[in-house]
Amino acid sequence: MPSTFSQIYIQIVFAVKNREALILPDWEDRLYEYITGIIQNKGQKLIAINGMPDHIHILIGMKPSCSISDLVREVKKSSNEFINENKLSKHKFSWQEGYGAFSYSHSHIDNVYWYIHNQKAHHKKQSFKEEYKQFLEKFKVDYDEKYLFDWILDAQKQNQSKQ
């Protein structure tokens, strides 16, 4: 019987609205478990998930029947509701619009897994803004700086320089 065979690996990256550091260590594992459940319920394979207080990385083995945009929309919508309904954040929580999606071959999966696993150590050396722009450049994604995530620290610096 004919079937569809595929091997699609996608790293998804998205940030907290205004890049605020709202994901706290005392509940980030609950968030990651919840997101894992969403991805598995959509029939996709979660390989790695980790992040920082202001953003997360997710590595997924995807089936071609799944739309990345639909999956990310569901992950963000449902996890946003989960965080707010359970009052995990002291502040109103929401994800920022947009996301990055980067594809990998099977031979790169171990490296991407460990890259995601070691996010906290990695970000001692590189900011999220530098990391994200590096992804866009590495994957040759055309972008306009004004359409990237709102960089709250940049906005604060601009406001301070105006004073």
Rank of each mutant, 00 (worst) to 15 (best):
E130Y: 05
N41S: 07
E130K: 15
P64R: 06
D150R: 14
K129Y: 13
I47Y: 00
F93Q: 01
G37E: 13
I49G: 00
Q134D: 14
L71M: 14
W95K: 03
I38P: 00
Q119P: 06
Q44V: 05
F135G: 05
I68Y: 04
S94P: 05
F128M: 13
H106L: 11
H123A: 12
T36L: 02
K76Y: 01
I60W: 01
L88D: 02
K129R: 15
Y147E: 04
K45Y: 13
D154I: 05
Q156G: 07
D54A: 00
G61R: 01
N50E: 02
I49C: 01
E97A: 15
V72R: 02
Y147T: 12
G61N: 08
Y34L: 07
S127P: 08
K63Y: 07
L148Q: 04
F128T: 02
S89D: 08
Y113D: 07
C66L: 13
A155R: 07
H57P: 02
Y32R: 06
E137N: 14
Y99D: 00
K157S: 12
Q126E: 10
D144S: 04
S105E: 10
K42T: 11
I47A: 06
V75L: 07
N118D: 15
W95S: 10
H57T: 03
H117R: 08
S78H: 15
F128H: 08
Y143F: 13
F139R: 00
K129W: 03
I39H: 00
